[in-house]
Amino acid sequence: METVTDKEEIEEIENRIALYSDYIEDKPEIVKKANQLKSDKERMKLLYKTHCTNIRSFKYYIRKTDGQGHFIDTPIYTAPNGEQYIFPKQNWFNNDEIITLIAVLLFAALVYFMIQAARKGKRLYIRPIAGIQEIDNAIGRATEMGRPILFVPGLSGISDVATLAGLAILSKVAKKAAEYDTRILVPCRDFIVLPIAQEIVKEAHYEAGRPDTYDKNSVFFITQAQFAFVAGVNGIMIREKTATNFYMGMFWAESLLMTETGSATGAIQIAGTDAVNQLPFFITTCDYTLIGEELYAASAYLSKQPLILGTLKAQDYMKLLIVVTVVLGTILSTVHLTFFMNWFPAK
């Protein structure tokens, strides 16, 4: 190391040392504390923790306004210990959700009891739904005509429950189609739905004892673009002359474009969707339509297992409970008793 001998230079360095020590003195408490720590990692940890605390600390005051631009402020709240900054405490339960929790528990209990009842052999009545009963006939028709079946599992992704319901129906339809040795075409718009649909159709063929007839190319991806997908599906209907078309899942503005083409080609069409807005289009152009919850119920109807029938019955009771709550709430609010309404948080 070189030793500085020049007087001026020494003076400059001393000045600088003085400047930096002043700076260190002036530093916030936390930096000094951090400097005393040994390792870099510990220092960063302390600083980060303080940073996180600081950005989440707030001062509070109340502003009252008449909605016309006039307002009055209270002084900033000071805690008994003189502290103005308040740091929120983490909760373990979100009190706004208490009604949701009660409803969830109630529903789960209902499902449990209904499944138990069904297992014990209690006969549960469920309303017959024409659209579901016709599924078998529709597949049979395609078989007789020797033409393929088209199954569109909706345009939404896998996180949409309607898509899952559509896929559940696909597994039943594909199995029947495999038994009758009828080709089934499944165009997909979502690439995560694609492998799942492929797997479902493949398994359905295995289950029906016809693994040889499974064609991987019959379940395919077209495009993510909404209307280009429709163009693709319509093309398939016209070229392949599908005898039966199923639309099960989530549909949007494109629904009428597909079903009108299907009706023009003379196919039997069964649709099921929970997209309320598309129901009028499906009802006018399809032979049978599963409305809203019927889509979710369809796989239960088709499998006729007590487990699944139990959940269906539980749904009915839960719906009754909700309707009673709604009616009660309406009556109470009409006579200005709002306590009941206030139990339910608005979101």
């Binding site: 949007w252 503005a253 009428l256 997209a275 309320v276 807005n277 608005a346 979101k347």
Partner: peptide, 17 residues
């Protein structure tokens, strides 16, 4: 929204969602 979907939003408008 497109006009085909427009009637869909009324429940959400009424609740302020």
């Amino acid at each position: 929204l497109t006009a085909v979907m427009a009637a869909d939003v009324y429940p959400f408008l009424q609740t302020g969602q």
